[in-house]
Design a protein around this nucleic acid. Structure first.
Lengths: 196, 196, 196, 196
DNA sequence: GATGAATGAGTTTTCATTCAT
DNA sequence: TATGAATGAAAACTCATTCAT
């Protein structure tokens, strides 16, 4: 089996383990066992437990970003962009439950590795912030730090809703996305008008 | 030193340790050292690491709930209630940084202990949900599961904003609370009108 | 409460704990709790865990020996002596289950304290040995080391039978004693005649 | 070094430690040190202290039983069987001092693990009981519970004699075995005739 | 005489990590 | 490339024992 394929399989399995048990409680022994590989191989491929974790987070984060970038319509009206991005985000969550769970847990954990993920989140927050700041539409015009704080709040609402959704799989994706898009838009409008 | 006082001091120190390092990485050895006490005392007081953690979470959660209950005005218009609760919430976060951090981390961790905190959060979510459902005001009238999902999103926005604020201490509390109250109210209004 | 009475009560409780859990697994904490006394008192009275244990074993052993001595008829024919001692022994076991259990466990444990009990057992063995050696009756006349080994075997049969009896309380004491007396006498007779 | 060999070496060393100090006082630290191995290996091989202990007892017990079975002559007259089994038993004790000590200590300890060994002993007791009950020979014909109690007494005599012998190594094995066979046979005869 | 509070030293156990082959 | 065998370091937890009052 070629190396790159092995790597992908290992990452998949590791993701499951991390999502289920969290970073500290997921043991290399168990991951090796699930991956049907010997422990020294794990280390040969990823160097350390942290290395494996970072690799998983990087792959997952890159995937999420790539999808958002692909779905993005930078020149469309903000409301359209927001809907497109929202839809894509919930698609991602639905298709990568483990990945999303790990990303989210890491975001809120107080661990040295948090930076990776914080950085990823910041990219998304920044995008929202731009919408709040850049004056190209009727509801833009906020300034830092308000734009930053509100953007974080909006993103946090999405995280929370995504997690809620994972526990309520009978609710349709489009419905959830619609709720979120509505909330985000209303929040933005309100923030901007309050600012004026 | 009398027992009950020691207990409080230990909880304080343990909270710091848990907030800094997370549950798994915080060691009993270190907590004992920080508390200037021997390990057996930790166990005499709290039985186990989990016991200590639960005790801390319970104390902190009870404190948060008590404050929210005290600040609540159940018969005031929803918008007034929202502002009152929001203000109190950010007060709590400001005064109990560690407590809030631990509560929040626990909320999102995949650990057996999460139930305690999930329960606490659910109480808050439920309150928001009621506002969304009970038809006593112009902007009420949502039904489950939308009311549940949206309530989680709104609470998540608050969590996220609180965390952001902890890293931006130069921003005034009233300002942040105002942002959040505006967001929450706009989100509610929008959700309800979309529903109609 | 006068000191000597306290001591007796503590010994009683300690005996129960030792019989139930064995020396190592019986904890001073638990003994103090059962005795409704504080731990420092335990230490004031008996100095150490070992001290407490030794005190219990000494009291129990002294009691057993005293009873055997009182019941003994040194000038009666051997078969009569044997029956008298046997009866008394099973009486003791019946009345001091814990005491007997502890004595017996200690006998066979490889612990520094074993000497006390070994010494006690040796006194009993010696008595049997004398019967085997002293030529005053038809079935006497064995010499060391045979007399020693056989005496140990005979005593061991009694220990074992006593333990069996503790688990079969519906069997009458006289019956058990009779079995044992028969066995011992037959064993002696056979040993002596083989020797000739 | 291959796994199975290591396992045997560890068991050997562990047996020595258990025989010397008893289960509770024998520490894994020390066993690892004696075995010239690291503690994690102990756990890799046997799972836990109890696992190691059970493994040792199982191996030793299986060995003893196998030897008795091999030496047994079920169709020979009882007296011949008794002599054969007795001889084999003392052989075993001579060759496995530690094993016998541990088995014997465990038999009489009040510890959760005692069942394993109790079961083993019961197999031997049962064999003696059968000799007492099955009427195929002149000295058979006893009924429960007497047959059970007497069988325990006879086995106990053997245990005790074996332990005595371990402390008197200058006495010949055949001699000791002869004492015991004589005692057992006399005991059986006497019990049966008393019963009639 | 009596005790609540305290601890040093030890226990079993687990984990990420690395040789030797 | 691949792995069975191995370990240093540290974790949670317990216990006999003793102050200070």
């Amino acid at each position: 089996m070629p190396r790159s394929m092995r790597e992908q399989m290992i990452l998949e399995v590791a993701g499951r383990a991390f999502a289920e048990a969290g970073y500290e409680r997921a043991s290399m022994d168990r991951i090796a066992q699930l991956a049907e590989i010997s422990k020294p191989m794990l280390y040969a491929y990823f160097g350390s437990k942290e290395g494996l974790y970072v690799a998983y987070i990087e792959r997952t984060g890159a995937d999420l970003v790539a999808r958002l970038v692909r779905a993005d319509r930078p020149h469309a009206p903000h409301s359209v962009r927001l809907r497109a991005l929202t839809a894509e985000f919930f698609c991602f969550v639905a298709e990568h439950r483990d990945g999303w769970t790990v990303l989210f847990m890491e975001m809120n954990a107080s661990r040295p590795l948090a930076e990776q993920v914080a950085h990823l989140r910041e990219r998304i927050v920044t995008e929202i912030r731009r919408m709040l700041e850049e004056g190209s539409e009727s509801w833009a015009g906020l300034a830092p730090p308000a734009s930053d704080g509100v953007a974080h709040a909006i993103v946090g609402a999405g995280d929370s809703l995504a997690n809620w959704w994972l526990k309520h799989p009978d609710v349709g994706r489009d419905e959830v996305a619609e709720w979120y898009a509505g909330l985000a838009q209303a929040a933005i409008t309100s923030a901007v008008s309050a600012h004026r």
